[in-house]
């Protein structure tokens, strides 16, 4: 059996693929930022003195980390209207889900990061008279940020790949657009080859860019 490659139909739809790619990246970045906020707050809560707070956050993290993300996407997208919340469109619904999802993973990242901020820097900050809030802002967070940076890069790449699941609720990201082309042109292999190539190239680009950022900030020995 011989397969004749014909990429022309794919190239005709290439603009749409790029639009889908941009949308996926945008959703991944927003989710990463929201997830970072959730992660920082929940990581502090995980280290809180209140057992109730610790257990609540632990439940959230465990629930999310042990649920398939596709289930979460359906749960939020179809579940919220059931309880009378109609205000989210499919984009917002997906970003909300991905943020909650990222937040659970980043809670663990930041918890480990917070614990590994060396005590001696905090003591130095105390010794010059910085107040608790100032110690967090000027010393703990900058050191923490440098410690967790590699994990943040990895999370951004996973989140970007996870945006392909938005196809399930018809968000027109890259996978969705590729499937459209596929459906209308039957160029199955060509379409998925190009789409895969775009994912690959983007993930490498993210990794490369963040490696540069890491190198810029890698001042902690």
């Amino acid at each position: 059996m011989v397969y004749y490659f014909n990429f022309d139909p794919v190239w005709r739809g290439f603009g749409k693929l790029l639009d889908g790619l941009a949308l996926g990246l945008e959703m991944a970045v927003v989710s990463l930022l929201a997830g970072t906020l959730i992660g920082i707050v929940c990581a502090h809560a995980r280290l809180s003195s209140s057992a109730l707070v610790r257990r609540a956050v632990w439940s959230y993290v465990e629930f999310i980390r042990n649920s398939p993300i596709l289930l979460l996407i359906f749960f939020v997208y179809f579940g919220l209207p059931e309880v009378g919340i109609y205000s989210l469109d499919k984009y917002q619904s997906f970003v909300l889900t991905l943020s909650i999802y990222a937040g659970a993973y980043l809670t663990e990242v930041f918890r480990v990061g917070l614990v590994s901020v060396p005590v001696r820097y905090v003591e130095a900050a105390k010794a010059i008279g910085l107040r608790p809030f100032q110690r967090q802002i000027y010393v703990v967070f900058p050191v923490l940020f440098r410690i967790v940076l590699p994990s943040l890069s990895n999370n951004l790449i996973s989140l970007f790949k996870d945006t392909s699941l938005a196809t399930a609720i018809a968000v027109p990201e890259l996978t969705f657009e590729a499937r459209e082309i596929n459906t209308y042109t039957f160029r199955v292999i060509e379409t998925w080859l190009v789409a895969s190539g775009l994912y690959l190239a983007t993930c490498y680009a993210i990794a490369f860019a963040l490696r540069l950022v890491e190198r810029r900030y890698a001042v902690i020995r």
Binding site: Y121, K126, A127, I128, V139, V219
Partner: peptide, 29 residues
């Protein structure tokens, strides 16, 4: 914190803030 500002301390392990330059380390307080 305000009282600590009146008491300077130098540690065995230096404890300079690793993300700041020498000048920024001194300027922070």
């Amino acid at each position: 914190s305000d009282q600590r500002a009146e008491i300077g301390m130098v540690f065995q392990s230096f404890n300079l803030f690793p993300h700041m330059t020498v000048e920024q380390n001194i300027m922070l307080g």
